[in-house]
């Protein structure tokens, strides 16, 4: 892929993120190694509490990391010290949230919402330029005719239109990376695909990278088919690779379990799907993450003494193109059902 040749926009090296909760420490992220390249699509998938949103916030620079290194455009994050550089950094990375109703100020018109970042970052010189830029932005996100939208308030728009405005606002500052956190989860099915297609078009037209965070595997597969997927479980990446590899030939037992569990909008296919029974249905809490591979208490292919001993490293196992963190796979052992 051509994107892989360019230097990464963001590099996470052994990144940890801890939160204090009362007297306990929640290890929300542990040892995350992840690069985001320019103009690529990277999908973070996993169930709630897996750390995908926290990772997204660290990538977008909205949250500090507790341990490890974060490099931005080749330089350590800490080296960005003066205010101008920091402001520039903030502009380069944008985030689009799940709920456009909560993230758009209800008492401002769309024109005002979009003008604010343009003026603050001095992206336009005068009123004429501002007006032209506003129309251009709304056209970019397919809100046409733009004149009709400008003077409306967020509550006068539909959910899909509001999310398009959020995206337009992210685009005001000409970012190089957009983190889309469950950006279409609250939008109706019939409208969702239109927004995703638009994001894909913007990625090409404006040369931006998109980090797409979702719990919906089918959606991730559609959106990131040309890009990569990282599957997360309890604060770690358990599998990462090109989307067709991960979805078509999943390596990690957790990814396999997820894929087997997703119902499909096709009665015959979904009813014929072979279920992968787990050994336990309860996800352990972040306060007591299991030793070794965090998935081992639920994994049907558990190997005692191996899986519960050490945290497995991400590696490419034989027969796969993507990296997975699974000790038996790494050793080339066949995955057999644990009988005990």
């Amino acid at each position: 892929m051509s994107t892989a040749q360019r230097a990464p926009l963001v590099e996470l090296k052994h990144v940890d993120r801890f939160f204090r909760k009362g007297n306990a420490t929640l290890k929300v992220l542990q040892d995350i190694n992840l690069n985001v390249y320019p103009n690529e699509i990277l999908c973070l998938v996993g169930e709630s509490g897996c750390g995908k949103t926290t990772t997204g916030k660290i990538i977008a620079g909205l949250l500090n990391h507790s341990g490890g290194e974060v490099n931005v455009q080749g330089r350590p994050l800490a080296s960005y010290s003066d205010r101008r550089e920091k402001a520039h950094l903030r502009r380069t990375f944008q985030i689009v949230h799940q709920d456009p109703f909560a993230s758009l100020n209800p008492s401002h018109t769309i024109a005002k919402i979009l003008s604010f970042p343009l003026l603050r970052h001095k992206m336009v010189k005068n009123r004429t330029e501002l007006a032209a830029r506003l129309l251009e932005l709304l056209e970019l996100v397919d809100l046409t005719p733009p004149q009709d939208i400008l003077n409306k308030y967020p509550h006068q728009l539909s959910g899909g239109q509001r999310q398009r405005v959020s995206i337009a606002r992210a685009l005001t500052v000409q970012p190089k990376l957009i983190v889309a956190d469950e950006a279409v989860s609250m939008v109706d099915v019939s409208i969702r695909i239109g927004i995703l297609k638009m994001l894909l078009r913007l990625k090409e037209e404006l040369d931006i990278a998109i980090v797409f965070i979702t719990h919906d595997l089918a959606l991730a597969k559609y959106f990131a088919w040309q890009g990569r997927i990282a599957v997360m479980y309890l604060g770690r990446i358990v599998e990462i690779g090109r989307t067709p590899d991960v979805i078509g030939n999943p390596a990690h037992p957790y990814t396999r379990a997820l894929l087997a569990a997703v119902p499909e909008a096709d009665p015959d296919v979904t009813r014929a799907k072979e279920e992968m029974p787990l050994r336990s249905e309860d996800i352990p809490g972040l306060l007591n993450i299991p030793h070794g591979c965090a998935f081992h208490p639920r994994c049907p292919f558990f190997v005692p003494g191996l899986c519960d001993a050490e945290v497995p490293k991400l590696a490419v196992a034989r027969g796969f193109n993507q990296e997975a963190a699974c000790a038996p796979l790494e050793l080339g052992l066949p995955l057999t059902t644990y009988a005990g």
Partner: peptide
């Protein structure tokens, strides 16, 4: 509606 079991797919809104 996106599906998992198909390869690359063309969806429409």
């Amino acid at each position: 509606a996106p599906r998992l079991s198909t390869g690359a797919e063309e969806l429409m809104s």
